[in-house]
Design a protein around this nucleic acid. Structure first.
Lengths: 125, 125
DNA sequence: TCAACACATGAATAATCGTTCAACTGTTGT
DNA sequence: ACAACAGTTGAACGATTATTCATGTGTTGA
């Protein structure tokens, strides 16, 4: 349940309303969350990274490369497929996956280059 | 458990090993997943969007603006704080949050501009 | 000193997500 | 027709995650 604006403070209602208006729509926020969610898993990230490098690979090799079971890889690819991040090409009993032309590709690249790795200290907690 | 390379296919072991070498390290993949995970929630996305617009806001107004309880907002901000996405400035009993200078800001902007909203059809499933 | 306030937090519950297992589809070669 | 294979899938289980509730901390003003 949404809280009321701060009772005694002066800095509230108008500003809140103004900023609220500038926020992306519910639908946009949902979509963003979903896209980011796709990238929030190591297994899926590795699949994407592998495809980024390889161009095209079959499920079995993808599984091996990314260190997961074929079942896990298949489930992951299914998700990525449903969200148009990857595309399949079927040939006989093989299924070759490649990255679809999508923003995810860019997000991944941007993230990986910008996390140069200034790691090591934490804010608090 | 990792699967063996495809038994009969010729396109396996060498290529797999080569691409495996080009994959980001385990640690990098973990970090990436975590950052994307932070952005994979509507509540947190709205907080970030609000701060992107407002520059600085107190928790109460943030909660109101983003449509969540103060407790939920506080928990979310705590997470973002721990991951150096936001920073606090305390003044009396108020806590003013702002975005920390981080890649998340860029990821958000890039994602929001590149999901122009060519939505409407799904791959399969 | 007391009460209202802004915020933080731990614990519990509910919801979501990933992994595995077992079974199933369709293909290839014998 | 049969067996081995590449891949898919559903259901079940375990783990992670979000949300709520109740309480706690420190601050302000009467």
């Amino acid at each position: 349940m949404p809280a009321d604006s701060c009772a005694s403070t002066g800095i509230d209602a108008d500003r809140v309303a103004e900023i609220q208006r500038s926020l992306p729509s519910d639908e946009t926020v949902q979509d963003l969350a979903q896209v980011f969610g796709l990238l929030a898993d190591p297994g899926r990230l590795r699949l994407i990274a592998a495809l980024l490098e390889a161009g095209e690979m079959c499920v079995c090799d993808l599984a091996e490369t990314t260190g997961q079971s074929m079942s896990a890889a298949s489930h992951a690819l299914r998700l990525l497929r449903a969200n148009r991040v990857v595309r399949v090409r079927r040939a006989g009993r093989m299924a070759y996956y490649r990255l679809a032309d999508s923003h995810v590709r860019m997000l991944f690249d941007l993230a990986i280059t910008h996390i140069g790795h200034g790691e090591g200290d934490r804010g608090d907690d």
